[in-house]
């Protein structure tokens, strides 16, 4: 266990192992995404209330789920970086931020497009949408802070502190936004959770959620490889890798 943990801190090992993971995970992810989307688009029956527009759920929900989970991945990397001073955790933190931000953006955008035929409006200041918007701001804040530092080692640590502060605050933000919404809830819009979803609709959704998690992992590893190369540009193993 501990030897594995130590290996995680070794750039050449991480670079090599991420390459061999990506070799099979990336095709599998693309296959899962393609299968899930085709299944959701063409091979499921439409919802009896929302008609065909509900098919957006197959990208909206996985993107939202993974976007939120991504923040915790980022914050965990931040904690590891601060506690064990592991440089590779900084790289992981920086690698996770843009992926999480992009997925949050996808969730917000598909939600808006879904809202138009369902509620008749692009944007509603609903608790969940507002929380997602705040999550996007949190991601963008981490990226902006990292880019503002010239010293990238300090940038990683500063982002680690910020993402940990964010982790402590996310439950508070979510609860207060929830409460705020219940206070102002307009009567015309009713939100019904997907509590009783038919299994035939559920299976493609589950496949896509897993595929989105895999996609997040792939993007994280690929971004990390770039980060590792940039950090280790002057070392012997990178020189060997380049072929000199």
């Amino acid at each position: 266990m501990w030897s594995f943990f130590h290996k995680l801190g070794s750039p050449p090992w991480l670079y090599r192992i991420s390459g061999s993971i990506l070799r099979w995970l990336l095709p599998l992810t693309l296959l899962g995404l393609a299968l899930g989307m085709t299944w959701g688009l063409f091979f499921t029956a439409p919802d009896f209330r929302q008609g065909n527009s509900y098919r957006i759920i197959y990208i909206h929900v996985p993107a939202a789920v993974v976007a939120l989970a991504g923040y915790y991945v980022m914050a965990t990397a931040g904690a590891v970086s601060l506690i064990w001073k592991m440089k590779m955790a900084d790289v992981a933190l920086r690698a996770a931020a843009p992926v999480g931000a992009a997925l949050t953006f996808v969730a917000l955008l598909t939600g808006a497009i879904w809202g138009k035929p369902t509620w008749g409006t692009w944007w509603v200041w609903d608790a969940r949408i507002t929380s997602m918007l705040i999550l996007l701001f949190l991601y963008l804040g981490v990226i902006a802070l990292y880019e503002a530092y010239d010293n990238k080692e300090a940038a990683g640590k500063a982002c680690a502190v910020l993402s940990l502060v964010g982790t402590v605050n996310i439950p508070i933000i979510y609860k207060s936004v929830d409460w705020w919404y219940s206070l102002h809830q307009p009567a015309s819009i009713k939100f019904t959770g997907p509590s009783s979803i038919d299994p035939s609709m559920l299976y493609p959704l589950l496949l896509l959620i897993i595929s989105f998690y895999a996609l997040f992992t792939c993007c994280l590893l690929m971004n990390m490889r770039v980060g590792i190369l940039q950090r280790e540009a002057r070392t012997k193993w990178v020189r060997k890798l380049v072929g000199l």
Partner: peptide, 30 residues
């Protein structure tokens, strides 16, 4: 917190707003 993280930066003014406004929201709500 935002001030501590950005104090070393030359152009911290706008950045600090980006960093801490999300954390201001619960206070505003209540």
């Amino acid at each position: 917190i935002g001030a501590a993280l950005t104090v070393g930066l030359k152009r911290g003014g706008m950045l600090i707003a980006l960093l801490i406004l999300p954390f201001y929201m619960p206070v505003l709500i209540f």
